[in-house]
Structures are given as C-alpha cells and as structure tokens.
Design a binder for these strands. Sequence first.
DNA 1: CTGTATCCACGGAGATACTG
DNA 2: CAGTATCTCCGTGGATACAG
Lengths: 127, 127
Amino acid sequence: MVTKQLLKGLPEDADLRRADSLAREIFSDVANKWALLIIEALGERTLRFSELRNEVEGISHKMLTQNLRMLERNGLVDRKVHPTVPPRVEYTLTEPGRALRTAVDAICGWTHQHLGHIERARGRFDA
Amino acid sequence: MVTKQLLKGLPEDADLRRADSLAREIFSDVANKWALLIIEALGERTLRFSELRNEVEGISHKMLTQNLRMLERNGLVDRKVHPTVPPRVEYTLTEPGRALRTAVDAICGWTHQHLGHIERARGRFDA
DNA sequence: CTGTATCCACGGAGATACTG
DNA sequence: CAGTATCTCCGTGGATACAG
C-alpha cells in the first residue's frame, strides 16, 4: 500500500489510480516530522497557537502555521477562532486526527524502547 | 514524549536530557516519507537495491542510498553484500525494523480508511 | 549492479516586519 | 495573539558521471 503494489494488475482502473495517488499525497503530508509532532503534542488537549509553539520544541512560527493549515485542510485538526481581542485560536484533533495519533504514539513508544539498540548500532556502524 | 514534556521538572538530569535529544534525533530520522516507505516496502521480504528502487515509487537513486545508510546505521535494516560480479546487495528489516513497521502499517491503514473523510474535508476547506 | 562524488537549481525554512 | 507577506539563503535532492 502506498507503494507500487496497490496498482499491480489493475493498471487501467482510473478510480483506483486516483485513490492511490490521493493516498500517496496524504501519506506525504502526514509522514513528516513536524506534522507528527504537532499531532502528538495536541493529544486529547485543546491548545492555542502559542501554546503549541511552546510544546513543539524547535518549530518555527512559519512551520507551525503551515503545518496547521495542512492538517486543518485534511480534516485532522479543528480550528476554532474566538473573535476576541486579542484573538484566541484553539486547535483540537478531530476524530481522524486522534485515530492517527495512536499510530504516532506507537512510533514514539518504539523510539524510546529501542534507544539502546539504536545507540549501539550507531556505535558499530560509525566504527 | 519527544516533545518538551519529557523534560519538564527534570531540567538538570543530564542522562535524561541526553536520552531525550537522542530520541528526537531518531524520531527525525524515522519520521520522514522515504524512510517510512522503504520500511513498508521491505516488510518481511529481502530485497535488492534495484528491486527496492522499483518498489518505492518515485524515489531517486540518491535518496534511496541515503536513507538505506541511515536505516542501516540505526540498526533498522540489515545490509548483506554478496561479493559476486556484478555485486548483489540485499536489504532486510531487523527485528526493531519490523517492530516499527507495524506502526507504519497503522499509518497506511489509517490513510486508506480516511481517504473519503479527507477528500471531503479538502473540498470544504478549499471553498 | 551498487555505490560515491560533483554540480547545480529549486524550494524549504528562518528572520523580519506589518495587519487585524 | 495570530496570521500573512516578503526577502533571502542554505540545504535538499535531482541529474549526471564515474568507480569497483
């Protein structure tokens, strides 16, 4: 899936090809560092723009807005603007967003579980 | 995890800080499109460089080698060189690599499950 | 076949400033 | 506070050529 396999044997089914290209597009959107970190940071909480900026270590203003727009566009986060002054904008994961989060959690868990193995592998490789 | 939280309240524990920065590094390595697609393509199989190049749609020679080195360095893939002519190099997921693959599978599954929702969300957003 | 190196262009991403 | 816009620069990544 998302690789060539999905296409095999059905090279002329236009619908399937569209679905697959869409899937690749979404995968590219979602499979990037900042998007995943934002999703992980949001979790079950609702956070403001500035709070998110603090939670996601090292992200720039620009990358944050950019990724938030992307996530909103794909329906992964909900954006709620409070028409106050100064403005207050809150971001929350939608249901699909929360569903994806469990996968992100898995990656985070995996990372911590294998820290040791990886550190050792690196030592060996760099030698 | 992988965000600021891990550090909270323990700003001076050097070991934890090292572990956390290492975790971020690994996360950045792993949370990128090509790395995940390679892992997904490998699955339970053993593939040669050129086979991998065919399986991972759109990846360039350079990106493939680069990511394979990275994955090898982190101990996620095993690289076996057959000293024949022409050379034959085979790549296989290690145990940690296969463990991560289940998370990647989850993301792929999620993608296909939510194609419809996302397409509709996009339609709304773009309007 | 696989891998490394070089060149180069394009776009990603930071900094900054400004608006609502 | 949140968002957009502009400018600029550096690095990513593609193309190409060559080596083992």
